[in-house]
């Protein structure tokens, strides 16, 4: 398995929610939706420190975000709903109306 392969979960976060109300151009919202959270072990393995920029790639698109250590299981990454998470998700809904928004296979790469 290549090093940077992780399972991405997108979801709501409190900061994303409160930031939403301060306006989508507010720094709080921007920060909330442009940060990916990862397990410490994965970060070390990929040579990442808090605040480093990483590129996340899926078969649907890619996004450049900051990373941050968080309490997550190994192999998992989390990003709040927002314009960047949307770039990673495809429009196929398998006749449900719902895109595959959780459990995405992603490739994570450090931007030096």
């Amino acid at each position: 398995m290549p090093d940077g392969k992780l399972t991405l979960i997108t979801g709501r976060s409190l900061k994303q929610g409160t930031g939403l109300n301060k306006g989508k151009d507010s720094s709080e919202y921007r920060e909330a939706v442009t940060t990916v959270e990862m397990n410490g072990g994965d970060m070390t393995r990929l040579g990442l420190c808090d605040g480093d920029l990483v590129k996340i790639k899926t078969s649907h698109g890619e996004a450049t975000v900051q990373c941050r250590r968080a309490e997550l299981p190994e192999g998992m990454a989390f990003i709040a709903y927002g314009p960047l998470s949307s770039c990673l998700i495809g429009a196929e809904t398998h006749a449900s109306g719902m895109p595959d928004s959780k459990g995405l296979e992603v490739e994570m790469e450090r931007i030096s």
Partner: peptide, 29 residues
């Protein structure tokens, strides 16, 4: 459903009320 109608490029005009789909729907949509 919106993701499908937009993702397949079918809709030719849209009215969006009290929501921000550009921020939340998949990029293609």
């Amino acid at each position: 459903t919106a993701v499908d109608v937009l993702g397949r490029g079918e809709a030719d005009a849209a009215l969006i009320v009290a929501s921000d789909p550009v921020a939340t729907l998949p990029r293609v949509a």
